[in-house]
Amino acid sequence: MTQPAQPPLDFLTLTVFAGRLYAINRAGQPMPLYVYAPLRQAYAGHYDVPLAPQWPPYTADFVAQYVPMPVLTPEQLPDTLEADITQQARTGDPERPWNQMVYRSWPLYYVPGLDASGTNDAQPAMFEPARDGMDPPMVQNSDQKDTLDDGDPGWPPGVWGP
């Protein structure tokens, strides 16, 4: 039976600085949060994004850098963000099985060891910084193209990867 590769970090809260979302770790350091940008195209094209263990093996090292952000309690969330925070169960991921924080329908990720000063955003068309008030992935050019229930029993998928 596969065991979790490593438990998630323990975070205190979320914060917004210069329009970007950060998680504050136990040492009080802000860690930038990311979203998987192709979710926009996935919603528009009606295809899923599998969880990381289902990605091709030669992309495993890349995708493993991005760790699903664990859920915080409502008391830990700033009032300004709480209404936009939900969670998803990572059903089918034996390596990172914990519930994942979701912001405005975007699953959130952090990069261990990457603090605010070392932020590397040079990842074209892949992981992008999570931004305060960003449009949900199902909103295309300010129009919501897909609702959560458009009659397709298989859509949207129960969990969004990676």
Binding site: P38, L39, Q41, A42, W55, P57
Partner: peptide
């Protein structure tokens, strides 16, 4: 991938969500 004998497909054969990248 080569050392493991894992073929790496051309871009058209990759998962849809990675093609734009």
């Amino acid at each position: 991938a080569v050392l493991c004998g894992e073929p790496v497909p051309y871009a058209a054969g990759w998962p849809e969500h990675m093609k734009l990248f």
